[in-house]
Simulated assay, not measured.
Amino acid sequence: MKYDDASWHYGGEFPSDLPDEAGATHTGMYVAWALLSGLAGDIHIIDYPEDIQRLQERSVTPGAFFLSACDGKFTNEDLTDEGNAFTSWYFDFEKGQYLADYEATFGQSLPEGPNSLYYVTDSWDSFDKLRPVLDMRLLEWRSPAG
């Protein structure tokens, strides 16, 4: 199952002043967090352990990692069973909370407009702002009341 694909975000109402890579930042942040949080599927752990190492070392930004290591595609193969269960609940663009949390974390510092979230900088500083929110959501989901 494919959760997201960076190519889905290019064109249309995508901001013309941004490079296509900006369409990968929001998913790259989530994928990097998931892989660094122990939710990496076997494809990364067994077949490409250097992927996790590059993230741990922060030698590549989350969006750039997503584009290079995942070819801009986020699928169920990237995650463990628990990672997929959480992602199905949280990341889903129609019923999940991820984009609302992403907007709450970054929205105030971005230009106004319907596609302003594409302006989030693909950086470890941005990741460090978002990570506590994602950690909290995972803990909520894991809790018996979640």
Rank of each mutant, 00 (worst) to 15 (best):
L18W: 03
D101P: 07
P15K: 00
Y3N: 01
E103N: 14
P144S: 12
G72W: 01
L110V: 04
Y98M: 06
K73D: 08
M1Y: 12
L35R: 01
T87P: 11
E82G: 05
L130E: 01
A85D: 13
S126H: 04
P62N: 06
A145L: 15
V133Y: 00
G41H: 00
F14K: 03
N76M: 11
T61N: 06
E140W: 02
M29P: 00
N76H: 14
W141Q: 04
G41Q: 03
D71N: 15
T80A: 11
G113M: 04
A64V: 12
S68Q: 13
D17Y: 06
G28I: 05
I43Y: 09
D92Q: 07
G28A: 04
L79N: 03
S126C: 05
L99D: 13
H26D: 01
G41R: 03
D128Q: 07
D17F: 05
E140H: 06
N115H: 13
D51A: 13
D92T: 06
D17N: 15
R142K: 09
S37L: 02
L18D: 11
H26L: 02
L139K: 13
T80W: 01
G96F: 01
A145W: 15
Y30T: 07
L138V: 07
S126M: 10
M1N: 12
A34R: 00
N84D: 15
R58Q: 15
A104S: 12
D135Q: 14
F106P: 02
Y48R: 14
F93R: 14
M29G: 00
T75S: 13
D92N: 11
Q53E: 15
L117C: 08
D101H: 12
N76I: 09
P49D: 13
Y118P: 10
F127H: 03
W8I: 05
S143V: 06
D128L: 06
G38M: 06
M1E: 14
D20C: 11
G83W: 06
P15S: 02
V60S: 02
P114C: 10
R131P: 00
G38Y: 11
T87K: 03
Y30F: 15
Y102V: 00
D81N: 13
F14H: 04
I43C: 14
F65S: 01
P62C: 03
L55P: 11
D71L: 14
A100I: 05
Q108P: 08
S59M: 06
T25Q: 05
D42S: 15
L134F: 02
